[in-house]
């Protein structure tokens, strides 16, 4: 399996703290890869080191097969959307897009043609020659996104791309990311929103306090973190059944479902589900559901990172 990005043991230390601590990860080519972590975990610092915006203290980076520190030109094949967005307010929309495309080595004529295509695609045709400052925030985000993808990069690096987007624009972004994947591109994005990661990513890496907590394909991570939780539902309310669930020694705990019709339980480790099923079948009420609960990425995240790590974000300090 080839990798669009390989990070080996990179670290970044600032005066008072370590932002990234001996982090390694591998992003398969053509995949959508999520870097997850609480605020201040070191996601942005990692991405910035990948793009050589900040210089890493140690470790190796192979970006599309090249070290960006030694060979900056490789960055022309990368599209970067930073967490905090910004455009030249006084420039007109088309010019600003063409400018950023030219910085990535796109010829002026091609840049103008592609800019027009993307402007129309994103529904910004009316504002083509308007100044950026006259655009709404959502529209500015679209313009910024165009500047990220216009030069047809092989790798998209998106830092918290969904933050600040309204649901409609989130949908637009999701479609574009999926489109990029279909075209064989690799997409890396960081987020602390687990839903997007769950919907989009094939691979994730969870980091906290600058260290990797776990990484791998989402499916494997789910399987490895299945846990022992089940839901139980009966055909109709039955006091005897409820009494049994509450009293059973097979469960570590049992609690009422959200809508009060069923139960959520966690099995004692080593319990054979067949024994539980038999006991349930002997009850005086028909069983309608006995199923293992797939833990959500959010649950895995919270469990692995731990509540303690979800501290409030460190104040941003100078990044050297």
């Amino acid at each position: 399996m080839s990798h669009a990005l390989l990070i080996e043991n990179i670290s970044k230390r600032y005066a008072g703290h370590t932002a990234v601590d001996n982090l390694s990860l591998a992003v398969p080519t053509g995949s959508i890869y999520g870097i997850l972590g609480p605020n201040g975990a070191g996601k942005s610092s990692t991405l910035r080191m990948v793009l050589n915006i900040i210089v890493r203290d140690e470790g190796r980076v192979s970006l599309l097969g090249h070290d960006p520190e030694a060979d900056r030109s490789i960055l022309r094949r990368v599209g970067y959307l930073p967490e905090e967005r910004g455009l030249y307010k006084k420039m007109n929309v088309r010019d600003v897009i063409v400018f950023f495309a030219q910085l990535k080595g796109v010829a002026a004529r091609d840049a103008r043609r592609e800019a027009d295509r993307w402007i129309d695609k994103m529904g910004l045709g009316e504002w083509r020659n308007g100044k950026v400052e006259t655009l709404s925030k959502g529209m500015q985000q679209k313009v910024q996104f165009i500047t990220t993808v216009l030069h047809d990069p092989d790798l998209l690096v998106l830092d918290e791309p969904f933050s600040g987007l309204d649901p409609v624009n989130q949908e637009v972004l999701r479609d574009t990311v999926l489109e990029a994947k279909q075209a064989g591109k690799t997409v890396i994005f960081s987020t602390h929103g687990m839903e997007q990661a769950e919907q989009l990513c094939e691979y994730v890496c969870i980091i906290a306090s600058g260290r990797k907590v776990l990484d791998g394909s989402l499916r494997e991570i789910r399987r490895a973190n299945l846990g022992n939780r089940y839901t139980i539902e009966f055909d109709h309310p039955c006091e005897a059944a409820d009494r049994w669930v509450r009293g059973s020694r097979a469960f570590i705990w049992a609690e009422r479902d959200g809508d009060g019709d069923g139960w959520r339980v966690e099995l004692q480790p080593g319990t054979d589900t067949r024994d539980v099923l038999k006991a349930l079948a002997d009850l005086d009420v028909p069983l309608t559901r006995f199923a293992r609960v797939q833990p959500s990425l959010h649950e895995i995240f919270v469990q692995r990172v731990g509540e303690a790590a979800i501290a409030h974000r460190r104040p941003e300090t100078a990044h050297v």
Binding site: R48, L51, N52, I53, L75, R76, V78, Y80, P82, E84, R85, G86, L87, Y88, K89, F100, L103, K104, T147
Partner: peptide, 14 residues
């Protein structure tokens, strides 16, 4: 302007 609007970060990535 580039610093406060964070354009600098995109520029420096290129």
């Amino acid at each position: 302007e580039e610093k406060t609007s964070r354009i600098a970060e995109v520029l420096v990535s290129s």
